[in-house]
Design a protein around this nucleic acid. Structure first.
Lengths: 202, 202
DNA sequence: ACCGGGTTCTGACAAATGTCATCGCGCACC
DNA sequence: GGTGCGCGATGACATTTGTCAGAACCCGGT
């Protein structure tokens, strides 16, 4: 009895390579391949895969959002997030989105097959080192607005531009920025953006 | 007669998948796989591949630097750069480093095989759209020092920290930063870093 | 009804950043 | 030998950031 797989990754070359690799295994069958997050659900409804392998960085809809929709609309399909970056926040958000597995592209190929087979047995599969890092990063101490401001600041704009895009006064933006800088332990905006981003707080 | 390939990519999963994909073709044989830039030359000397496929983002030594060393020390080996990002500056730097091919991971799998076969015939292979973008981005207008300062600024440090790490006075750093901001058309440090980075000027 | 916390604003202040003019030094090019 | 350009520095200045206190509002909990 073969395990039916859906593969979502925006890099065609990587997706095809991964597809061939997995198809070589006797118990795997890649039944759908998509290159955009917003095509995931449609393909899953059509092909009813057992496991969906989702990259995070994708156009249209990111893999985490796609996982959330998938968990809701196609409950029979287990989600394994497969990503380049073993960033702490990604893991937490993946779990919150209903994923049951999390594999980094740095892992050896057997680890992927292994993970797929184990989630089919009902297990949750996560790299232990990454799990520790995630716990260490902890919950975000940022308020919703501080988060918004940091996201807007990521683009590199001035306080005036951030204020404009969020319809806030400049003083308010400076206040939130100040709070975010304090909470992240950084010494300026750039540092705060980097820290918060790394920890997955954005 | 098979074409001998060396494959360099730090993401094990991607590398293995790509390896299997290429090995399935009758006229390809993957004779070496490495995960770090500084292992490329050693492996090439040992296995004498016809074509080296190099990712750019790698630990140790980046793919562009590896390409340069390879072109010098193993002249019989053609270099094809294989990267995630079709960023303008990468292409130029790859060409300067002696690469004869440039393939984006967004391309379909046949494009890669095609590129390999064509470089073996002595052709140079580059995605035309990317070539245009590269020409549009133009040569870097930054002086060597402006570039250094921007690179140091990328980490998010203050002027004092940048000055310290480059052994310059703070005023000088501010001057270079100012010049870089003007030349990139940005309105502050963050913007300048982003623009210059995107255009491959760093 | 009261308290606490998040949101939004203002005003004031210090520190960091960006701009500009100007100087001397060395190197390459004509 | 002069000219131009990049490097490195200084000083002065305007602007932008970051910090802090205070005040008003809304909302949820006790």
């Amino acid at each position: 009895m073969t395990i039916r797989l859906l593969l979502a990754d925006d890099q065609v070359l990587v997706r095809q390579a991964l597809g061939t690799l997995l198809d070589l295994e006797d118990d795997f069958e890649v039944v759908a391949q998509v290159g955009r997050g917003d095509e995931v659900v449609g393909a899953a409804l059509e092909c009813s895969p057992d496991v969906a392998l989702l990259d995070i960085e994708m156009p249209g809809l990111d893999g985490l959002a796609a996982a959330a929709v998938l968990a809701e609309q196609v409950p029979g399909c287990r989600v394994v997030v497969l990503t380049t970056f073993g960033r702490a926040g990604y893991l937490r958000r993946a779990m919150e989105a209903g994923a049951v597995g999390f594999v980094v592209k740095d892992a050896p190929a057997e680890a992927l097959g292994d993970a797929i087979r184990r989630v089919m047995l009902g297990e949750r599969v996560v790299d232990p080192a990454l799990a520790v890092a995630t716990l260490a990063a902890g919950e975000s101490p940022l308020t919703a607005r501080e988060r918004d401001v940091l996201i807007a600041a990521r683009g590199g704009g001035s306080v005036a531009e951030i204020a404009g895009s969020l319809y806030l006064s400049e003083g308010t933006v400076r206040n939130y920025l100040s709070g975010a800088i304090a909470k992240t332990g950084a010494r300026n905006r750039m540092g705060a953006v980097r820290v918060a981003d790394d920890r997955g707080w954005l």
